[in-house]
Amino acid sequence: MKPLVLTLRARPDQRLDLAPLVPHRLAGMAAAEIERVEVQTTRRRVLLADIFHLRMGDVAQIRIEGACDRLDRIGHEMTSGEIVAEGDIGAQAGRLMTGGSLTVHGSVGPWAGSGMKGGTIDILGDADERLGGPIAGEIAGMRGGVVRVRGSVGERVGDRMRRGTIVVEGDAGAYAGSRMIAGTLVVVGRSGPLPGYLMKRGTIVLGKKAVRLSPTFIDCGVHDLIAARLMAAFIGSYSTRAAKLLSRPLRRFAGDMAALGKGEILLRA
């Protein structure tokens, strides 16, 4: 069956909340009903049809054509199905997702994958700060699922992450994996200063040796870990570069000793 296609007419004059645009919330709706879904974030009412040209299809597969950084909350609380965005999108993409897949053929704004519990997010461009991180007032960030970023990510990727896997094939900004509670973060490229800042538990794997590491991380030596092989086998289906990195012996740093200190940074040896 053909997917539901939404083509952007023009850049909207306000930020849009596209949270209703997920398969489980559109299920059973006719084209006319979908067109009347409200997506404004200001007092000026905006209907989906005002912004997008709609070509009806299977709501379990949604395609968004046209790039705009004002398209926020795409894939919000998504439970199943597939959403493909053909260009750049805005903030909080795939936030609180529990299943299904979100693919972005462009870049995403801040808080992509924030608090997600399951499913996969694939970002072919870059991601802004706090990928997978909690929004203000939340205790934990990402809790499951997999996020892959082909490009680079901003500061604090995986902030307060609790479970799940983030793979960044490009570079990461400062404080990658800050305050991590647990989970796995792989940065194949260069990492900004102080990765793992105040992390409690969890694993951060870094592909480049030249890293400004906090002195509160303790060098535990070079190891060929079985756990890294298991991670490589799992990550291989998402990123061959990350899998290759994990297949080599890695230098283990335990930390952050300024916090609980049960986390680890694995550096290319």
């Binding site: 499951g144 796995t184 694993t203 756990a227 799992f234 680890e264």
Partner: peptide
Amino acid sequence: QISKRFGGKHY
């Protein structure tokens, strides 16, 4: 001890 979960497995 360290808990690791990925791919539906728990180690």
